[in-house]
Simulated scan of single mutants.
Amino acid sequence: MGSPDIIPIGAGDLPRVADLAYRIWPEAFAGILPAERIPGMLAEIYALETLAADIAVRDHHYWLARRDGADVGFASAYCAEGRVWIKKLYLLAEARGLGLGKALIAAARVQLGPELPVALYVNDGNAPAIAFYRSQGFEIERRVPVRMGPYDFTDYVMLKRA
Rank of each mutant, 00 (worst) to 15 (best):
V118D: 03
R16W: 05
P15V: 07
L14R: 11
E36C: 02
V118P: 00
A103T: 03
R147D: 04
D124G: 08
V144E: 14
A107R: 11
H61M: 06
L89M: 11
P150D: 15
V72S: 09
V84K: 04
G99I: 09
A129L: 02
R58F: 11
G149F: 08
R66F: 07
I140N: 01
S3A: 15
E49V: 10
A77P: 03
R16M: 07
L92R: 09
H61F: 11
K88V: 02
P34H: 00
P114S: 15
F138A: 09
F29M: 13
Y62K: 02
R66H: 07
Q111S: 15
W25I: 07
A47H: 11
V157N: 05
A18R: 12
P145R: 14
D71E: 12
T50A: 13
V110F: 04
F138V: 10
P128A: 06
A28N: 14
P39S: 00
P39I: 01
P26Q: 11
T154F: 11
D59F: 00
Y151G: 10
E44H: 12
M158A: 06
P145K: 09
L112Y: 08
P39K: 00
A11I: 15
D5M: 14
M148A: 15
F132G: 05
K160T: 01
S135H: 14
Y22S: 10
H60W: 06
F74H: 12
V144Y: 06
D71P: 07
V118S: 10
D68Y: 02
Y121L: 10
Y78S: 09
K87G: 15
A11Q: 12
Y121W: 05
L20S: 09
I9S: 04
R143W: 03
L104Q: 13
D152K: 15
F29N: 09
Y90D: 06
R37C: 00
R96N: 05
E36W: 03
I55D: 03
V118G: 04
K87H: 15
R16F: 01
I38E: 06
F74E: 04
N126P: 07
I45H: 00
Y22I: 01
L20D: 09
D13V: 07
A11G: 11
Y156P: 01
E115S: 14
D19W: 09
F153H: 04
E115C: 10
R16Y: 06
V144G: 06
D155M: 11
D13T: 10
V110P: 00
E44L: 13
G99E: 12
A108M: 09
L91T: 02
L104N: 05
F153E: 03
Y121F: 07
G113Y: 13
Y78G: 04
V17M: 07
A107E: 08
A56R: 11
D71W: 04
K88R: 15
A106I: 01
A103I: 03
G137K: 08
A108F: 11
M1E: 14
G99V: 11
G69I: 01
I6E: 02
E94V: 06
A77I: 02
V144L: 14
L42A: 05
V157L: 08
A43F: 00
G82F: 11
